[in-house]
Design a protein around this nucleic acid. Structure first.
Lengths: 117, 117
DNA sequence: TCTCTGCGCTAAGTTTACCAAGCGCCCGCT
DNA sequence: AGCGGGCGCTTGGTAAACTTAGCGCAGAGA
């Protein structure tokens, strides 16, 4: 864990605290909503701990924000949000965010096996 | 952590192992790519441990898939955005004039096998 | 044959996320 | 004045994530 990552985690804490205060929630209130102990949340907000994805998701839901946004702030998402143009089965497959690269290749291979004949 | 979650984590392990084998990677190779120890990856694949989001992201990148997909498989994404996926793939398949009805059903079955939790 | 290398797994240890108990402070009561 | 309750924080402790060392097996050469 290098110090660039530390900065990211610190920002995450500040981000959570800012959102919590924006929602007019006390530390204890948010802790209960997010199903974590209040001391732990305190330490997370000050950047002492790196919360797990599970906790991150609960905090996000408690703050009425998407888990993706939370992961983004935590630096846990890919930057490669590369999307292509939509047309036809192959492109729809390539666009689908719920498929892995290998799954996409598998589906496309099967699809071509059906059509190229 | 109730047992419904355990099932999710188990599926995650199987999912990772399947993807790894699809990519023709040995456990040690993927471990190095994902910057984790190979015994740990082994236990993750067998559902003994619940990897942190950090590890999940590294594994996803090593397998050339998006971190979101990984989180989705791990059950770490929002429930309220669970239906947000437009399923453009299924529609594109159904609209494709070059596929027979059986072929469409086959493709959709495989697709759902990939995306369902 | 025997050795070498890579495979997946086990065992034991270290690190770290997370919790329960409790402290000190401030503010609103009476 | 005293007291009660909410605030955020510190302090141990437990459990779980993660690592290092090493086991046994299978296949490939010499």
């Amino acid at each position: 864990m290098n110090e660039r990552d530390d900065v990211v985690w610190n920002n995450l804490g500040e981000f959570i605290r800012a959102q919590r205060e924006l929602a007019n929630l006390s530390l204890r209130q948010l802790a209960e909503l997010a199903k974590v102990s209040n001391p732990y949340l305190s330490q997370v907000e000050r950047g002492l701990y790196k919360p797990s994805a599970e906790v991150l998701k609960n905090i996000a839901n408690a703050l009425h924000m998407s888990a993706e946004t939370m992961y983004g702030q935590a630096g846990l998402l890919d930057e490669d949000s590369k999307n292509a143009a939509p047309h036809g089965v192959e492109n729809a497959i390539k666009l689908d965010p719920g498929l892995s690269q290998d799954q996409k290749e598998t589906l496309i291979r099967i699809y071509r096996g059906f059509t190229e004949r």
